[in-house]
């Protein structure tokens, strides 16, 4: 790569936040709190599985809510999506939305044709 192909940005015109040099990340303490919350939710999920609550209609929605909470926490804090550029957010949430829509559509489609 020649020198002409590279540049040095020293002003605010270029968003260096996502370039790898400047990051606003959670602190060491926050990371540990996030890990603790994830562990507590996981314990709650497994505990609920073994209780009579698992035979109630609320069992599946409860598990899904806890799973979505864990998913969101990891994406927002560990993957720094909460702090990163909105393009990254779009690159992740766009395909994720398509994926979820496909999943739900397929489930409805197969449920309809199988009579379940």
């Amino acid at each position: 790569m020649s020198n002409d192909d590279t540049f040095t940005h020293t002003n605010a015109d270029v968003d260096v936040h996502a370039m790898g040099e400047v990051h606003e990340h959670p602190t060491w303490k926050e990371y540990k709190w996030v890990a603790l919350i994830l562990t507590v939710i996981t314990i709650a999920e497994v505990w609920v599985y073994y209780t009579p609550f698992s035979k109630t209609p609320l069992f599946v929605p409860t598990l899904l809510i806890m799973s979505v909470a864990k998913f969101t926490i990891v994406v927002m804090f560990y993957m720094h999506l909460k702090y990163d550029h909105k393009i990254f957010r779009a690159l992740f949430t766009g395909p994720l939305t398509i994926a979820m829509a496909t999943l739900i559509s397929l489930l409805f489609l197969f449920a309809k044709f199988s009579g379940k």
């Binding site: 192909d5 040095t8 260096v16 936040h17 370039m19 040099e21 393009i87 990254f88």
Partner: peptide
Amino acid sequence: MATAVATHAHPPTSTGLDHRKIA
């Protein structure tokens, strides 16, 4: 952000974001 100064050389990008991270 306005005071952020980065001194590493990068390939120029139209978004101002690193290609590898977008990828």
